[in-house]
Nucleic acid binder design. Structure first.
Length: 226
DNA sequence: TAGGCCATCTGGTCCT
DNA sequence: AGGACCAGATGGCCTA
């Protein structure tokens, strides 16, 4: 990491002004970073003062090399930015992979990141619940099983306790859980003719998702020869 | 135009 | 020491 670099810049958000230090030149491209950035939890004002003093002393000793140091700083920052960009791209690729194995919407709407994670969470729960119920009552027809699994109010430990709440962030015990109007698409506003159960943030409707889920669960049961 | 989502930059902290 | 991870800030794009 940029340990030496960040030691030098420690507390910069608290009292770092362009006139404060000769090394304050910023290479922040998109914005001038006029942040209301606050000190980190471990950063006390006292420590900041100490660091500020150290910085001044170091600054006096290296005025001649300022250009070189600035170049080094800039190079390190550019490299760090590049790594961070790649890291986020990898993360997005993983999210895309996750999206690709989840049941899709009829209109192929791309799930947002948070929707993808919530849906995956609840989807995994639904599949395991399907298996569990199938194990419990093997004598029942699979259609009935799946229907029961998907549409039932669900077990107390379930991530989303209502049938339409595939993407809900609310826990089963959450008080914000409610029955509300909804749409056939989680990214669309609610319409009066649809309805869903769950948290008011993001919803999958009873019309689209449980249907997908039933199809998927049927396949799942078949595949696992339940 | 406001609000949501996203990509990117940035500095701090943790880990190897 | 350097990389990974994280969270805050910012600006762009899109949609209702």
């Amino acid at each position: 990491m940029d340990r030496a670099f960040s030691d030098y810049d420690t507390c910069s958000q608290m009292s770092y002004s362009p006139s404060d230090d000769e090394d304050s030149a910023s290479f922040h491209t998109p914005s001038s970073y006029t942040s209301g950035h606050v000190t980190s939890p471990t950063q006390t004002p006292e420590k900041c003062e100490v660091e500020k003093e150290k910085r001044k002393r170091r600054g006096r000793n290296r005025v001649k090399n300022d250009g070189v140091l600035h170049t080094i700083k800039k190079t390190r920052r550019v490299k760090a930015n590049d790594r961070e960009r790649n890291r986020m791209h990898n993360l997005n690729s993983a999210l895309d992979e996750l999206r690709s194995i989840l049941p899709s919407f009829p209109d192929d709407t791309k799930l947002t990141k948070i929707e993808t994670l919530r849906f995956a969470h609840n989807y995994i729960w639904a599949l395991s619940e399907t298996l569990r119920l199938a194990d419990q009552s093997k004598d029942k027809p699979s259609g009935e099983l799946v229907q029961h699994c998907v549409m039932s109010p669900a077990a107390p430990s379930s991530p989303g306790s209502d049938a339409g709440s595939w993407m809900s962030s609310a826990s089963p015990n959450s008080s914000s859980y409610s029955v509300s109007a909804c749409t056939s698409n989680p990214s669309s506003p609610a319409t009066s003719e649809d309805c869903y159960y769950g948290h008011t943030d993001n919803m999958f409707s009873l019309h689209s998702f449980p249907h997908n889920m039933i199809q998927h669960s049927s396949w799942f049961l078949q595949y696992n020869q339940v």
